[in-house]
Write a protein that binds this DNA or RNA. Structure first.
Length: 437
DNA sequence: CATCTGA
DNA sequence: CAGATG
């Protein structure tokens, strides 16, 4: 049941650049991985055969993990994920420096058109096909037919080139400072951490991934420099001397001592109430909504479902954050904006390029698992999750829960730093820069 | 997985 | 609501 992220095909935003992936510049089968990925893209975009596409990608991953240069079909097919047909292609590529099928694909009109159209954010295989059928074969032509595009796609088109450029670390830092400055002027204060490959120290990023949570979280005081450069980044906590409660006393999932944070924390989890949605638009009774802070606290109506309330407040908070950023000319466009995630575009003046910016607003109790998760890398996360499982926990982007022997997860454990999560599962703490797997 | 879109 | 997208 662990997630199989076959989802992202357009290069996972934040990292791609200089990191691992099916084609780390240094692996002995680099070229082979490359052509397999090209075939994967072809099956995905052109033939829309996800099985084949996934098969190629999977083969590429296996190959990327293979320690030595593959020498022939037989050796290739011995590798997990590589079967007869793919190994034959590898053979062909090994002997003749090329691949018939690939050459043909490279010149095929339909194929090149779809690949081109797909460069636009918001345009995937399906839309590309549709546009192609409408006679559009490249971006220039697409610019003449903007009536066929959604808002997201229009923006994607507007910034195609910029979005393909990597963002230098220094610029991410500039953007980070700008956002911090802007948000510091709001009544509601936020804790912020820029995650993604940037946090892991990479020199170039695909986009800027910001995580926010509203106040409390006993973060303020303990500002430890567990981070690489003591500078900015998050006001990481961790300082906690008595750091984590031991893994043992966890099991009982008992309530606990120290975290009696400030007011606005949503203390108790409540069962989902599908009815929620209906109420999203309004808090009927003007119920003291007066107070300017969005912090969700004083629940006027006890039985009323707090979930829907906190949900709408969440949306309102995220909205106000975005508005603030727009006001300060940092955010220039919006791709989407929901209860927890904003996707858009930003630019910080001296810079000419427009950059992709994602902002997610997390409940305080989800903050650290969120930071951990969104810092990645994907492989690191996967590894940590399996280690968690082995240690009897289940870990996701929101929380860590003890695994009952029955198989069902218990109540979320309290977490006040990334370190605590590592402690729970008995794992040595890893600096973000050590998570580049 | 969260959000948007169109039917 | 399903399908598309990131």
């Amino acid at each position: 049941h662990v997630l199989l992220n076959f989802a992202y095909y357009k290069m996972s935003s934040s990292d791609s650049g200089h990191r691992k992936g099916p084609s780390a510049k240094d692996n002995p089968n680099y070229d082979l991985c490359e052509f397999l990925m090209e075939l994967s893209a072809y099956e995905r975009n052109v033939t829309r055969n996800t099985f084949k596409s996934n098969a190629y990608r999977s083969a590429a991953s296996s190959l990327a993990a293979y320690p030595t240069r593959v020498t022939g079909a037989k050796e290739a097919s011995s590798i997990k994920g590589i079967g007869k047909r793919i190994s034959e292609k590898i053979e062909e590529f090994l002997s003749t420096g090329k691949l018939k099928k690939l050459e043909k694909i490279r010149t095929d009109d339909t194929s090149t058109a779809l690949t081109e159209l797909t460069r636009v954010s918001g345009v995937g295989p399906a839309k590309a096909r549709q546009l192609y059928d409408a006679g559009i074969t490249n971006i220039m032509e697409l610019k003449k037919r903007t009536e066929l595009l959604t808002h997201h796609q229009l923006i994607g088109l507007k910034y195609v080139e910029d979005f393909e450029k990597k963002i230098p670390r220094a610029e991410v830092q500039t953007i980070e400072r700008a956002i911090r400055g802007s948000l510091s002027n709001m009544k509601q204060q936020y804790n912020m951490t820029v995650c993604g490959s940037y946090r892991r120290g990479s020199e170039r990023s695909g986009d800027v991934d910001v995580l926010l949570t509203y106040d409390n979280v006993e973060v303020e005081r303990k500002t430890v420099k567990l981070e690489e450069s003591s500078s900015s980044l998050t006001k990481e906590t961790n300082a906690k001397n008595e750091v984590a409660k031991k893994r043992k006393d966890i099991s009982d999932g008992s309530s606990d001592e120290e975290n009696h944070n400030k007011d606005n924390i949503n203390t108790k989890k409540n069962r989902k109430l599908k009815a929620d949605q209906k109420y999203t638009t309004s808090s009927p009774s003007g119920s003291s909504s007066d107070n300017k802070s969005y912090a969700t606290n004083e629940s006027s109506s006890p039985s009323a479902n707090k979930e829907s309330a906190s949900k709408t407040n969440h949306r309102a908070m995220l909205q106000s954050v975005v508005h603030q950023l727009q006001k300060d000319n940092i955010v220039t466009d919006q791709l989407s904006l929901g209860d927890t995630k904003f996707m858009g575009v930003c630019r910080v003046p001296p810079e000419e390029c427009y950059r992709r910016l994602d902002i997610r607003l997390l409940a305080p109790e989800h903050y650290y698992c969120g930071i951990l998760y969104f810092t990645g890398s994907d492989l690191f996360n996967k590894d940590m999750r399996t280690q968690a499982l082995a240690a009897g926990f289940t870990l996701n982007e929101y929380n860590i829960r003890p695994m009952g022997s029955t198989g069902v997860p218990g109540e979320p454990l309290h977490v006040n730093s990334e370190l605590e999560v590592f402690d729970y599962i008995g794992m040595k703490y890893k600096q973000p820069s050590e998570r580049n797997m």
